[in-house]
Amino acid sequence: MGSVSQVRVRRVGLADAVVRPMVEELLAEYTRRYGAAAAWREMAGGEAGEFAAPGGAVLVVEVAGAVVAGGAFRRVDGVTCEFKRIWTAAGQRRRGWGRRLMAELEAQAGAYGYRRVVLTTGPSQPEAVAMYEALGYELEAGVGVDASGVRRYYRFVKSLPGVGSLGS
C-alpha cells in the first residue's frame, strides 16, 4: 500500500468525473465475465440519487491522487443497506485496496445507522467471493440458485455494530 499520507478516502457523487473510470472498468469487466446484456442490466440498476445522502454514499480510495478503488451503498430499509459497484482498478489488485474500501463502506454505513449489509456477486467472480467470505460476510442459504440447482449469483449478508442514526 502507499504511504498513509498518500492515501485518501473521500465521498463523491455517482456523476463525479473520478467515478467514470470505475464505471467504465466495471462495465468492461462484467461484459467479459457475463456478456454485454447482463453487464448493461447490472450497471443500469440504481439511480444516482439512491447512492447519495441521506441513505447512501459513493466512496473512492485515492493513492497519490489516483483512484484505486471505489464502491457505493444504498438504502434497502431502515436498518439494511446494499453495497454496489465494488471495484479495484485492474492494475491495483491484490494490494489491499478492496479490503480498505470495504472497511470504509462498512464504517460509513454504520455511521448512517445501518445495522446490516447485503451485497451480491456472480459465480464468475471467485476473487470477490473469497474476499467477502474473508471479511465475515455470510452466504444467504438458498438464494441465487435456480430450480435446476445452478448457482446464478451469490447474496451475502453481514451485521454491522455501528452507532448513530440514519443520515448522521
Rank of each mutant, 00 (worst) to 15 (best):
S3V: 08
V4I: 12
V4F: 15
S5T: 12
Q6M: 04
V7H: 05
V7D: 06
V9E: 03
V9A: 01
R10G: 03
G13C: 11
L14G: 06
L14P: 12
L14A: 15
L14T: 03
L14K: 15
A15C: 08
A15L: 10
D16E: 05
D16I: 06
D16W: 03
V18K: 08
V18W: 07
V19L: 05
R20E: 15
P21Y: 07
P21T: 03
P21D: 00
M22H: 04
M22V: 13
V23N: 08
V23K: 14
V23T: 08
E24P: 00
E24F: 03
E25I: 00
E25K: 02
L26H: 12
L27V: 07
A28Y: 04
T31R: 13
T31H: 08
T31C: 04
R32K: 10
R33G: 02
Y34I: 05
Y34G: 00
G35H: 10
G35T: 09
A36N: 02
A37M: 00
A37H: 03
A37R: 04
A38P: 01
A38D: 09
W40S: 10
W40E: 12
R41N: 09
R41S: 06
E42L: 08
E42Y: 12
M43S: 11
G45P: 01
G46Q: 08
G46Y: 09
A48K: 12
A48F: 14
G49H: 09
G49F: 08
F51N: 02
F51V: 07
A52H: 05
A52R: 05
A53L: 10
A53P: 05
P54E: 09
G55T: 03
G56P: 01
